[in-house]
């Protein structure tokens, strides 16, 4: 009951809907951080995962990088970066990217490895180039799993991007950090609810992406 009361109070307060600390602004900032971190993580992890998966080499190295990446404490990294480079965007992006790279990298590698070898063999036998095999045969077949990896990365970033508030940046973390400091639990619960909502929206976006980007012939089999 208490929780619902807080949620009602937070979203019912008209003051929360505009201004630099309003919900639209904070959601916009949060989505911005998320997209930026996801784009950087994908730019690093997708090519490496696709190429290593295609050639079937380096799986062990990837697994080690992934374990190391997961072991790095996100918050610790944030503090470390702040000590090193001061306040700024870089020290928020670094831990978020480090968080998202392992699931994208490992899933992409595994997705490429799990592609049925016979169409790949047929494609080579027909005289398709290696790039052709990768992009026209393996990638379309591996796409559902690869999107799954991107989705895990995205969800992790969405829920962790609240750390930006610790280094005086915006995003939904502002409500949580400020709320805790001010003992304004209405704000804390409201912020947390918005983060959960964004995570659900992320799931929906990836579902739609799957419908749009994955061929019917592959989707039906999965």
């Amino acid at each position: 009951m208490n929780l619902l009361h807080f949620i009602n109070a937070f979203f019912g307060d008209g003051a929360h809907w505009h201004g630099y600390n309003g919900i639209p602004t904070r959601v916009g900032e949060h989505v911005g951080y998320t997209l930026q971190a996801l784009a950087i993580a994908a730019l690093i992890a997708l090519p490496v995962g696709l190429v290593t998966g295609h050639y079937g080499r380096g799986g062990n190295v990837l697994a080690m990088i992934a374990v190391a990446g997961r072991a790095l404490p996100t918050f610790g990294l944030l503090v470390l970066m702040t000590l090193l480079v001061g306040f700024g965007m870089v020290n928020v992006m670094t831990p978020l990217v480090v968080l998202a790279v392992p699931p994208i990298l490992v899933t992409t590698y595994e997705a490429m490895r799990s592609v049925d070898p016979s169409p790949v063999d047929a494609a080579r036998g027909m005289g398709m180039s290696e790039a052709g095999v990768l992009f026209q045969v393996e990638l379309p077949a591996a796409l559902p799993l690869i999107l799954g990896g991107l989705r895990s990365g995205a969800i992790q970033i969405v829920s962790t991007a609240t750390i930006a508030a610790y280094v005086s940046l915006g995003g939904l973390g502002r409500y949580i950090v400020d709320g805790l400091y001010q003992r304004d639990y209405e704000k804390v619960v409201g912020g947390a609810t918005l983060v959960a909502g964004l995570a659900l929206v992320t799931l929906a976006v990836f579902w739609a992406l799957g419908r749009f980007a994955v061929s019917r012939g592959v989707r039906q089999r999965a």
């Binding site: 063999d121 047929a122 379309p140 077949a141 089999r221």
Partner: peptide, 18 residues
């Protein structure tokens, strides 16, 4: 060379997405 030779394998090896 390969494009001048048709290649057929046991499980057909069709591209599922096409």
């Amino acid at each position: 060379l390969r494009r001048s030779m048709g290649y057929v394998i046991q499980n057909a090896g069709l591209f599922q997405h096409r």
